[in-house]
């Protein structure tokens, strides 16, 4: 039972990070119709900037965090202006492949600036060593901070989009760009803002992942990104709460499967192998979508004649 709770906690930690990343992806997808394959690279650059400030600038952890988040916000804004703007009205596939090209460019730039981050480098936080034990379950302060921060960030973002004037305008622009423009909304500014917030969220999630794993690397979010896409789609890619739920479910399922498959064999196959776990998750995902094509919380689309 303790082991089960322990992996559930780990699942909740990775899950809330997946959920946060999924939220950022859904945000940009709804605003611009782009499946942003560069999202992992954008987040990794935010983490790398923080690493730079701590390691070379000798900043205090919290100041570095603040600066990295501000940097990511501006960085996202600039990315939209320089990169996403020219392809905004291109066909949807063109936009998706363009983000892929962007990921290649960003990763090359990051590799040039931080060659040492091609491998994993230790990433320390002020609260690393603080751990408590409740009923056989070890709980790190890091775990609590991650789950708490991710929940607050997700709630804040949802409130911002549904309650604030700017947030509502952003959603209107996402629904129908030309109508929003006719009604006087500064659409181009709103889309840039979406990218800026998206980038901020990516950096925040990336930094928490670095705190969780205790290491930082330019490619640290690459493998997570696919899980995040899957999480977003499980929840329903038009739905923000859906994205969060999908991400959390995936994180928990992954960790629990890892626990129960470890050390077992099935004939010649070692089912403790991560490959088996992945197969089960991907197969489950594909089957789930076959059964519920619009995701858990997505709306079924009506066809017009």
């Amino acid at each position: 039972m303790a082991a089960f709770l322990q992996v559930t906690l780990a699942g909740l930690v990775t899950g809330s990070l997946y959920g946060l990343l999924a939220l950022g992806i859904v945000l940009i997808y709804r605003a611009t119709g782009v499946l942003n394959f560069a999202y992992g690279a954008i987040g990794a650059i935010g983490v790398s900037v923080m690493y730079e400030l701590i390691a070379r600038g000798h900043f205090n952890f919290w100041l570095a965090l603040l600066c990295a988040l501000i940097f990511s916000f501006i960085f996202g804004f600039l990315l939209e202006r320089i990169f996403a703007r020219p392809v905004l009205n291109a066909p949807v596939f063109t936009k998706a492949i363009a983000t892929l090209a962007l990921a290649l460019v960003l990763q090359t730039i990051a590799d040039q600036i931080w060659p040492e981050l091609a491998q994993s480098v230790r990433f320390a936080t002020p609260f690393d060593s603080i751990t408590t034990r409740i009923g056989g379950v070890y709980i790190r302060l890091t775990d609590i901070i991650i789950i708490g921060t991710a929940s607050i960030a997700m709630a804040a973002l949802t409130l911002f989009l549904t309650k604030s004037k700017i947030g509502i305008a952003m959603r209107a622009a996402a629904e129908n760009m030309s109508t929003a423009r006719l009604m006087g909304a500064p659409v181009s500014m709103l889309i840039a803002l979406t990218w800026a917030i998206g980038s901020l969220v990516a950096a925040l999630a990336g930094i928490m992942e670095a705190a969780n794993l205790n290491y930082v690397g330019v490619h640290m979010l690459d493998s997570a990104l696919l899980y995040v896409f899957i999480g977003a789609v499980i929840g329903g890619i038009e739905s923000m709460p859906g994205a969060v739920i999908g991400g959390v479910l995936l994180g928990i399922a992954d960790n629990i499967l890892a626990l129960y498959l470890a050390g077992h064999t099935l004939g010649p196959v070692n089912i403790g192998d991560p490959g088996v776990r992945e197969s089960i998750i991907f197969a489950g995902f594909v089957i789930l979508l076959f059964l519920r094509p619009q995701g858990l919380l997505g709306q079924r689309q009506l066809r017009r004649v």
Binding site: A96, V233, V269, D273, G275, V286
Partner: peptide, 20 residues
């Protein structure tokens, strides 16, 4: 987008099985 990601899941499934 659902089909795009679902089919991506299919690729990852094939990848895991072939690796296995």
């Amino acid at each position: 987008a659902y089909l795009a990601i679902a089919s991506l899941g299919l690729v990852m499934l094939a990848n895991s099985i072939l690796t296995l």
